[in-house]
Design a protein around this nucleic acid. Structure first.
Lengths: 263, 263
DNA sequence: TAAATGTTGTTGCTAACATAACAACAAGGT
DNA sequence: ACCTTGTTGTTATGTTAGCAACAACATTTA
């Protein structure tokens, strides 16, 4: 008889988020390591109380994770993990799809009055969310786009989003580093590293070597990309006239410095 | 102010299986229909008690489903459902992937002694699971493969699985209907419908018009594909010598009838 | 003062967890 | 036969944890 060998907690958590309970996870894992076990063997292997094993096995069969034999006593076998997880994901994805449709219906009713939006400052968490917001800003650009960001962030996460910007819009890019050829479509301003080193305080404050940046569209919509101490990216977005003016001035100042330092 | 308008229960269930609680779902849905709501507005729109709204919103921000403004009082906005669901699914899929890897590790330790397997009869639920089992049977075929199934089931779910069967293996197919050209690789036996109609009892019992079938490989491994009254497919699988012999005889008998009826 | 915001603590509820005990049945030994 | 011994499947019962629901409080804003 095998020992109940303790199961790593993160695995249990992962299985929980796939819709299994702790017992279901333990029993399934136990069954994966044996072939055709009886209920009592399942109990011994998984460490789950024998009385609880029966309802748990019922649920697992229902979820298409184990199969039952027709002998007496019944014997149980686990579906290979590959396919078992696919079975679970199929349900979840179908739920996700139907939820998405229902939610879109609600979403379309949304008041588009865009009420106080102009004066609010929003925080956005997660790189994905920030990138979508940025993409939306760029797509709606009508007059100008200005970027001030670390080269890493720019070329890895932002540059591709600039494609939808119409040719008529002037795009100014300020950064401290640029690898590869300089794009002809945009006005690129390189911050001379020498100048930065002379005033290390500024270097630290303006372009810290974590991924960060400031983005301004049409002088009205601004986004500040920051990276929390934990490395999780977050951002501020606003259509506030005050913040827009502040950002505008900030970028302009840095560009002036850059120009002055070159001379 | 909008009415709390009741939310369809299935939607709540779907969102629960994506890892949201009831309150989280209600608040998110409520936020989808407004722009920049305060905590109390969220309470009014969603019907969630005002005191509970705060922790719930915290969790939703954590899950990247809503963004917060930096005003006082705070205002909240929902990310579009499209992207919100994608955010949820990203987490789940990453969990699924790590779980799959960990489970495969356990699975590989499995005793392959294949102990009593030979005399057991297993039930398999779910079309996907049945098809994988069938595929496994076909792939391991060394001498013979025999199929007796309704044409619908055969051509829609089974035929593709026959590809891996080596050419040296004799494949006998018995069915009541075949659309399209007859495959040259297999020995196809068509049950004359006329003969079936003359003995309606047999027609009912042998080939009921639900999807069902009998499969035998190497005269040793048999699978019975049935369809429950609820339309959910299930199957019996066995390597029992007794069942295999029974199935062998059953298929042979039907083939004899077919031959006799043609004359 | 009044109204709204944000927070805290208490209580109830439900699903899952955990243990104990029971009837039914099959060896196996006296 | 009888009585043990052990296993299977089921039922009842108690416990815990997380969420749901409500009341109360300090704080701000008008």
């Amino acid at each position: 008889m095998k020992t109940p060998r303790d199961v790593p907690t993160p695995l249990l958590e992962s299985l929980k988020s796939l819709g299994l309970t702790k017992y279901e996870a333990l029993v399934y894992i136990g069954l994966l390591r044996t072939a055709g076990a009886t209920a009592t063997e399942v109990h011994e292997i998984s460490g789950v109380p024998r009385a609880s094993v029966y309802p748990v096995l019922d649920r697992l069969v229902q979820k298409e994770l184990v199969s039952v034999s027709h002998t007496a006593p019944k014997r149980f076998d686990a579906v290979p993990p590959d396919q078992g997880i696919e079975n679970l994901m199929r349900r979840i994805e179908s739920d996700a799809e139907s939820a998405r449709e229902a939610l879109e219906a609600f979403y379309r009713e949304k008041d588009l009055e865009d009420r106080g939006d102009q004066e609010l400052i929003w925080t956005i968490y997660g790189e994905e969310n920030i990138r979508t917001r940025l993409a939306g800003m760029f797509k709606s650009a009508e007059r100008s786009v200005e970027l001030l960001a670390t080269g890493d962030l720019l070329q890895r996460s932002v540059l591709l989003l600039l494609d939808p910007v119409p040719d008529s819009v002037r795009v100014e890019i300020v950064t401290e580093r640029w690898s590869g050829e300089r794009p002809s479509r945009f006005h690129l301003h390189l911050l001379p590293l020498a100048a930065l080193c002379e005033t290390p305080i500024l270097a630290e404050k303006l372009l810290p070597y974590e991924r960060s940046g400031v983005f301004l569209v049409d002088d009205t919509r601004a986004l500040l990309w920051m990276e929390g101490a934990d490395g999780q990216p977050s951002a501020l977005y606003s259509e506030s006239a005050g913040l827009a003016r502040f950002v505008r001035r900030h970028i302009a100042t840095v560009m002036e410095w850059a120009k002055a330092a070159v001379q």
